[in-house]
Design a protein around this nucleic acid. Structure first.
Lengths: 218, 218
DNA sequence: GTCTATAAGCGGATAGAC
DNA sequence: GTCTATCCGCTTATAGAC
């Protein structure tokens, strides 16, 4: 699903020295914009701040992205895939303990590796999902439906205890994303975050063991 | 812990007709401000929007709160108690299943009854807790330390399996707050939220059963 | 592609009448 | 306490030189 019609724009040119510099600038702008938008939200972000973080002038940034909204949509678009990737549906053929364990580990790794992406979506959703609402209702609802179907199958086969598939999905999302979205709080309490390998291992083991024990048949 | 020195201000006057109107206005402003700040964050919120939601003019709002920051701090201050209340430490003398079950139910009820408060703190924390950082490091860390100590005691007595107390606390917070903070996403998938009694019961049962089964000794 | 200068508008805050 | 009018700084966005 596209959030923007990506017209060619200045960045899509021939391979000249200028255009190569342009490509790099676009990439740096998008990286910087992700961090800033993920911290302050759309309204709260200042494009000058993004420009500075990307090492460009504000005017120069506006050469690549005509408006703040264009930039925001471009960031969201580029972030979609990395955020949706670990949500790929479960393989119904696998053993649920293995499959769910992998799912949790994948989602937790995403919280470690792309915390800004997680926070950007968190901000969007907290604000009522003004932009990503269509995505939630289509793409995400479809992913949930498929995943829930797989879980329901395991329940019917007796491979899982009587668990509500959608609530289980929410639990996994909530617990894993918490370490990215509430990293400031976790750091205030722990003095560390998922970038610490030992802490990552602890978190992964806790979430996996707690949730799996909670849903496997007794 | 105080975030503001609440000087008397115009709102703390004798009980005249004017001052009574003022008290009501202050209350309406604070209610409106909580909703708006909880949606857009500090920077993203417009005081004119808050004034409109409270049924006042922007100028009139600024009569009661000199600056936007004053208003934000007042909202945060007033919201603190309702947000911290369900985090009261666990009673070590109780049976862990009962005590944890109550804790979860309390926190989930808070997500249902005060979702804006939950989102306000979520926004604060996602943004790196610029204002509430001292609170996190003192009050919240103390609550966590106490609660973790209780859980650790249960583990040592064999009343709980080998669980990491702090990660267990994060799991409970994450799963329960998810229904408030990500309500837009849940609604997009479910078509309902915690205000639906049946859905509340489902969520409560799922979280309680899953987490408790995951931590009780086998 | 990048810069300087500047337009245009918004949002926070104040002054002063009523 | 509430209103109208207004100031001022900040932020987005554009114009045009280099």
């Amino acid at each position: 699903m596209d959030l923007v019609d990506d017209a060619p724009g200045p960045a899509a040119r021939q391979d000249t020295a200028r255009s190569r510099a342009g490509q790099e600038n676009v990439a740096r702008i998008l990286d910087a914009a992700l961090d800033v938008f993920a911290t302050f939200g759309f309204r709260g972000s200042r494009i000058e701040q993004i420009a500075a973080a990307a090492g460009l002038s504000k005017t120069n940034l506006l050469y690549y992205f005509r408006t703040k909204e264009d930039l925001y949509l471009a960031v969201l678009q580029r972030t979609l895939d990395m955020w949706l990737e670990p949500l790929r549906a479960l393989d119904p053929a696998r053993d649920p303990a293995d499959a769910l364990g992998d799912y949790i580990a994948r989602k937790l790794a995403a919280s470690r590796d792309e915390p800004a992406a997680s926070r950007l979506f968190a901000l969007e959703v907290i604000q009522g999902a003004p932009i990503v609402a269509p995505l939630l209702e289509k793409t995400l609802a479809a992913i949930v439906a498929e995943t829930a179907g797989t879980i329901e199958g395991w329940v019917e086969q007796g491979k899982l205890g009587p668990v509500s598939p959608r609530h289980l999905i929410y639990s996994i999302w909530a617990t894993t994303q918490h370490y990215a979205d509430f990293a400031a709080q976790v750091r205030a309490i722990e003095g560390r975050d998922l970038s610490d390998p030992a802490f990552f291992a602890e978190a992964c083991e806790h979430v996996t063991r707690t949730i799996l024990q909670g849903v496997l048949p007794r």
